[in-house]
Amino acid sequence: MDQNADASFDPSKNYDEDTLAQQREIEKEIAASQAMVSQLHTFDEIVEEYSQEDAIYRQKIEDLKSRFKNLRKTRGDGNCFYRAFGFAYLEKLLNDGKEYKRFLDIAQKSKDELIGLGFPQFTLEDFHDTFMDVVKMVENPGTVDGLFQAFNDAGLSDYFVVYLRLLVSGHLQQNADSYVYFIDGERSVKEFCSQEVEPMGKESDHIHIVSLTKALQIAICVEYMDREGEKCNSFKFNPFESLADDTDTAPAFTLLYRPGHYDILYPL
């Protein structure tokens, strides 16, 4: 509590802490008002989020309604892509034992790969253990309700998100040569990972989605909803597209992207 102030700006004061404190207040408000993963919504409910004047978005909701039955929301806390991805995928695995086995194997092996890349073993194991606990909830008797509880339990849900972030970081670092040109700013892939991938709450871009689908070998579809055009643009992330064998390319699930946010879509 010195004062070396020369003007209105006090150089001895830590303004970062005020900013952080403000951020935490905003996060608390979001946490209090939005579930990490919501129950199913119908599009008749969703359309009410838009005013009558907002013809473009209302029309696009109608488009979705003609192809999808429900929507499940995720909390807008910067982790929505990972949470939507995790929930939608595990929910799919409830009915796909073969794919579950394949995924379980990849998930088990990923721990040693990440440690090999230099992630600290002590803390990585903690996240991996919790991640596997959640994944194994798919096994008998796996239920949507069980997953729903787990994904709304911060201790499980956030640890699960952290581990998905580490998988993205690991994949980017392992394939740094292919990704370095897709990173903006004068940053190395490793710097990008420590700034934009690993910290919780950092939003996901195209590059994060590509990495996660490649790391786990899962094809997904994203419906993009913006002000352009009359229908949502559907985009498939297909990690198999460069392989001759593309038998596995049906997307595991579909997400809805509205500017800055991902939710889960359920087909008719």
């Binding site: 010195d2 070396n4 001895s12 004061k13 992630f119 600290p120 996240f127 910290p199």
Partner: peptide
Amino acid sequence: YADGSICLDILQNRWSPTYDVSA
């Protein structure tokens, strides 16, 4: 800072959950 707080990126925008007290 004068109040003892520290300007270090890993304690702010580069924090990774894989850091522990030791790190």
